[in-house]
Design a protein around this nucleic acid. Structure first.
Lengths: 213, 213
DNA sequence: TGCGGTACTTTTGTATACAATGATACTTAA
DNA sequence: TTAAGTATCATTGTATACAAAAGTACCGCA
């Protein structure tokens, strides 16, 4: 196990990101540096750095009236899915081109865990494993650019989906889709894997849309 | 004209971004905060904030051995184009859905300038107007997510192209393509506009690839 | 009571101070 | 001469101090 010391600034960033995506800070709410310093027990320096990064990701916006929380809107969610539908397949293709035993193993492990948590109806861990599945692909697709483009989108989509509660039937389907994608990858069938992945993201989107009607 | 006071931190960020993309800092080169403070004549605080943001964009990487400049590799360029080919069309579609007189005017103006600078063989201004064209679309496509995804890609592609010198014949073709895209947009022919845009990005990519062989 | 001005408080941007960590170079001893 | 240990320097992470800008509230005067 590798121990890496994470700086306060990084911790603050991750904490704030999670809290914004998780809805602790409401969209439109304004926040001040000092308030965050108090809540997190650190000085302004790390808070400022975190805020700058959040601003870069457009999770907050620094207006003349103060820094206000942006979070993710329904339309943002749809837009993110539209993008992912079109490029997540590229990552899959890259993954296949750089295929290793280890990569396949990681993917299968994530899916196995998904099935396990499904039987336990443990939605939180299930989501984590969903992230693991997709991030494994991003990390091993051989393209930093693709990873940097997709990873934040997936992270945000994930959190959004969490807010609009997930029903079990979709979760079951989702894991099945992961399995199918994984098998296509193992068989090095790039066109199939790409198509399945696009469909997978599309299904997730459709599921949310239907539920919101 | 709107005057907005830009903080030192923002200025440092933009300056460093431009210098990295422009090749002033070489890929692999390591930089220290103090060196930058000296070069830019500011204290560490704004420099740090800028570095964090650059790190977020993966233009630098903070390793245990110091922060090293990443810049853009040839493969990064190809990956960025591959992504843009697939989603730049979405922005065009959004632009058409949110079409305004003002939007069309802005687009046409950018193209007019491009033709002007072409006659002057002024490559720098020509590139600026190329950026203006694409950024107008991003800004008016009605999706923050799409804009935030595409804008950095385009900015980096642009700078990369600058390094590998642009020949005139491609520039002429490029402006023609812009004009065609703009007319398809004005006619609200979304499928055509999308297709033309995808082709446009693809051509830019092909042009670089051929030249590098 | 209403309006205006002033002073205070809040908030942010920047600089700097301090501590910890890691690298480097120098000295000393074998 | 080499190796090891120590001391110093460089670099970064964090905290805080200070200044400027902006908002707010209170007070006085009409």
């Amino acid at each position: 196990m590798e121990y890496k010391t994470v700086s306060l600034a990084d911790q603050v960033f991750e904490r704030l990101e999670a809290d914004i995506l998780g809805g602790k800070y409401q969209r439109g709410e304004t926040i001040t540096e000092l308030r965050l310093c108090g809540e997190l027990g650190v000085s302004r320096t790390p808070v400022r750095e975190a805020l700058r990064r959040l601003s870069q990701e457009h999770l907050i916006e620094e207006t003349p009236k103060g820094t206000v929380v942006m979070g993710i809107s329904r339309k943002d969610f749809e837009d993110m899915c539209a993008i992912r539908i079109r490029i997540e397949g590229l990552a899959v293709r890259g993954f296949i081109e750089n295929l290793t035993e280890e990569g396949i193993r990681e993917l299968r492990e994530a899916i196995d865990f998904q099935e396990f948590y499904l039987t336990r109806s443990d939605a939180d861990h299930l989501r984590n494993m969903d992230s693991r599945f997709h991030e494994t692909i991003y990390n091993r697709c051989g393209s930093t650019i693709l990873r940097d483009t997709l990873a934040p989108l997936h992270k945000k989509v994930q959190k959004f989906r969490r807010q609009s509660m997930q029903e079990r039937s979709r979760a079951v389907k989702s894991v099945e889709e992961h399995r199918a994608i994984c098998e296509a990858i193992a068989a090095k069938d790039a066109p199939l894997a790409e198509a399945l992945m696009a469909r997978h993201v599309e299904n997730a989107l459709k599921n949310i849309i239907e539920k919101e009607l």
